Amino acid sequence: MKQVPFTVEVRKKTGKEMAKKLRRQGLIPAILYGPQTDPLPLAAKVNELKRILQRHRGESLIFNLTVVDNGNTSQRMALIKELQYHPVTDEIIHADFYEIRMDRPVEVDVPIKVVGKAKGVEKGGLLELIMREITVSCLPNQIPDSIEVDVTELDIGDTLHVRDLTPPEGMKFVEDPDEPVVTIIEVEAESEGGEETEGESAA
């Protein structure tokens, strides 16, 4: 898992007006929290954050935060837990950072990546991905960019559940083992001509 440096500042004031003021300065409100971390309000440079996310699109990132507080700095390690976007402009308006320890497991959602072509699809079936992300527990440096799910042997009517997946070494799935991940459904062929044609024939 890649580590990226990122500098943030502690903000002393909160609220909507402060958030508007920050955004006019090219900043967004953010917060740092964790199991052993009291919530810490932050301000972050939005364009720098966007550049990092665009440069590492599709990768799992650990942010090596330099936290500036009245000229003093401290180092924190964190994951992005959530990003909030403006409903119209789709710009980032808030970021949640989750503080981690490199020697302690964390729970994160990892995208599922389907590999292979299912037997059932070759027969005309349709692959339905039910679970697009799966929650895993592992050390931060073991967080994968994705979990690959091989569907090659799946036939029409088959379903892969969480219990059918093998997690990478040092990792475990947190999801319910009975949760379905992917299935192959049968596509019913439409009758030629449809009901309207049948009605016309009967007339």
Rank of each mutant, 00 (worst) to 15 (best):
L53G: 04
P105R: 07
I134N: 00
A202D: 11
T14R: 12
V4D: 02
V88E: 12
E9L: 09
E153H: 11
E107N: 14
E190S: 10
M1A: 13
R23Y: 05
K172D: 07
P167D: 11
L53T: 05
E107V: 15
L22K: 01
L65R: 00
Q36E: 14
V4A: 04
L129A: 07
P180E: 07
H94C: 07
I100S: 02
D90F: 04
E186V: 06
T166Q: 11
E9H: 14
E99D: 10
E198Q: 10
I80A: 11
K2E: 13
F97H: 01
V187E: 11
K13T: 10
E192F: 10
M171G: 02
P35A: 14
R163Q: 07
E200F: 11
I130Q: 12
G58P: 11
S201K: 13
D38Q: 15
T14C: 08
E9P: 03
F97Q: 01
T159E: 07
P35N: 15
I80P: 03
N70P: 00
E99Q: 13
R57H: 09
T7I: 13
T159K: 07
T73H: 12
E148Q: 15
E153F: 12
E196H: 09
P5I: 05
A43L: 03
E153L: 12
Q75I: 13
D109Q: 12
D90V: 03
V162M: 04
L79N: 09
E48I: 08
P29V: 01
K16R: 15
V121L: 05
A30F: 06
T66S: 08
H86S: 10
M131K: 15
H161A: 10
E192K: 11
E107Y: 08
G194R: 05
L160F: 15
I112Q: 04
N141W: 04
R55G: 02
K16T: 14
V181W: 00
G194P: 01
E179I: 08
I130Y: 10
S146F: 15
P140E: 00
V106T: 01
E190R: 11
P87C: 07
S191M: 08
L83Y: 05
N141V: 06
R132N: 12
N72I: 12
E188R: 11
D90S: 14
V181R: 00
V182I: 10
L27W: 01
D155G: 12
T159Y: 02
Q84R: 14
Q84A: 12
S74A: 12
R51W: 08
T37P: 03
T7L: 10
L126A: 08
C138D: 01
V106R: 00
V182F: 02
E9V: 05
E9W: 14
K45W: 02
E133T: 13
R101K: 14
E99A: 12
R101Q: 14
G125A: 10
G170H: 07
D158N: 15
V149W: 02
D178Q: 14
K172P: 00
R101A: 06
S191E: 15
D176P: 00
H161S: 09
I31A: 10
E133G: 03
V181E: 00
A202M: 12
C138Y: 00
P87S: 10
N72K: 15
I156P: 03
I143G: 00
Y98K: 00
D103F: 06
I184T: 01
T135M: 09
T183E: 08
G26N: 04
